[in-house]
C-alpha cells in the first residue's frame, strides 16, 4: 500500500529532515509514527500525500510513484487519502456540512448526495446533529471529529493523522483514538503520528520510531491493556435519527 525506498528529504540550505527511510505499510495496517519533535514525522506524512517531494528515493502509494506524478495528477492522489491535523484546519465561516463536503462538491455530487454523505460521515464521529453548526461553536474534540469526518467522507484508502490529539485533553484524545481504531477496523490503512508513548504502549499495533530523520525502531507492539477498543470505548455511535427534514445544508 505505502512503500518507502531509501527516501531522503533535504531542504534548501542542506538541512536534512529524513535520511534513507525504507519501510512498507501493507493495506489495512494501523501504524503509529513516533519520535521527538523535529524527528521528521510531519515531513514523512507530507511526503505521502505529496505536500513535499523527496530529495532522493521512491515512494509508492497504491502502486503509484508519488515522487514523480505530474502536478496535475496530485489532486487525484489526494482524493484517496484522508488527512487530519492537530489544528483541525476547519473553515470558521463555513458550516460543518460545508466543511465536510468539499470533496463531494468538487466531484460533482448533487446536494442530496452531499447531505447523505455528510450525514453518514458525521454519524461515524457522533456529530450528525451538528450539521449546521459553525466550527467556533464546537468544542476542540468536536472540531477534530468534524475534521475526521471530512477526511473520511470519500472512504479513503489511507487515513493520515498528524498529532490529532495534541490539542485535546486525555478524555477527548481517547475518544478520537477510538475513532481511528474503528476506521482501521473497516479496512482503512491508518498512519497516526504522535509522541504520546503512553497511548502507544496501551494500544499496541505497529510502531515506527524516528530520530533525527532516520528510522531507529520498527516494531509490532502488543498493547498492555488489550483489547484496545474496549479500553478506549467511552462513547457509542451517534444515536440521532436520519437526516430527513434536516435543513440548511449547503
Amino acid at each position: 500500500m505505502i512503500q518507502f525506498f531509501h527516501v531522503s528529504k533535504r531542504y534548501p540550505g542542506g538541512q536534512s529532515a529524513l535520511d534513507d527511510i525504507t519501510f512498507d505499510i501493507p493495506r489495512g495496517q494501523f501504524v503509529f509514527l513516533t519520535g521527538a519533535s523535529g524527528a521528521g514525522k510531519t515531513t514523512l506524512l507530507r511526503l505521502i500525500f505529496r505536500e513535499e517531494v523527496p530529495s532522493a528515493g521512491q515512494i509508492l502509494v497504491n502502486g503509484r510513484n508519488v515522487a514523480s506524478i505530474p502536478q496535475s495528477k496530485i489532486p487525484y492522489l489526494r482524493r484517496t487519502i484522508g488527512v487530519v491535523f492537530q489544528d483541525f484546519r476547519l473553515i470558521a465561516r463555513k458550516t460543518v456540512f460545508e466543511n465536510v463536503t468539499y470533496l463531494p462538491r468538487l466531484l460533482g455530487v448533487d446536494l442530496q448526495g452531499q447531505k447523505k454523505l455528510a450525514y453518514q460521515s458525521l454519524r461515524r464521529v457522533g456529530l450528525a446533529h451538528r450539521l449546521n453548526a459553525f466550527p467556533p461553536e464546537l468544542s476542540g474534540g468536536e472540531q477534530q471529529r468534524v475534521a475526521i469526518a471530512r477526511a473520511l467522507i470519500n472512504e479513503p484508502d489511507i487515513l493520515i493523522a498528524d498529532e490529532p490529539t495534541g490539542n485535546l485533553d486525555p478524555d477527548l484524545s481517547r475518544e478520537i483514538l477510538r475513532l481511528f481504531l474503528e476506521v482501521n477496523l473497516r479496512g482503512t490503512t491508518v498512519i497516526l503520528a504522535t509522541h504520546d508513548r503512553d497511548t502507544i504502549q496501551r494500544v499496541g499495533r505497529r510502531v515506527i520510531t524516528l530520530d533525527r530523520g532516520a528510522v531507529v525502531l520498527d516494531q509490532e507492539l502488543v498493547g498492555t491493556d488489550p483489547p484496545a477498543l474496549d479500553l478506549l470505548a467511552g462513547t457509542g455511535p451517534d444515536p440521532e435519527p436520519p437526516p430527513e427534514g434536516e435543513g440548511g445544508a449547503g
Partner: peptide
C-alpha cells in the same frame, strides 16, 4: 485554499 488542495481540488 489549503484545505481544498488537501482534499484533492484541482
Amino acid at each position: 485554499i489549503s484545505v481544498m488542495r488537501l482534499v484533492g481540488s484541482t
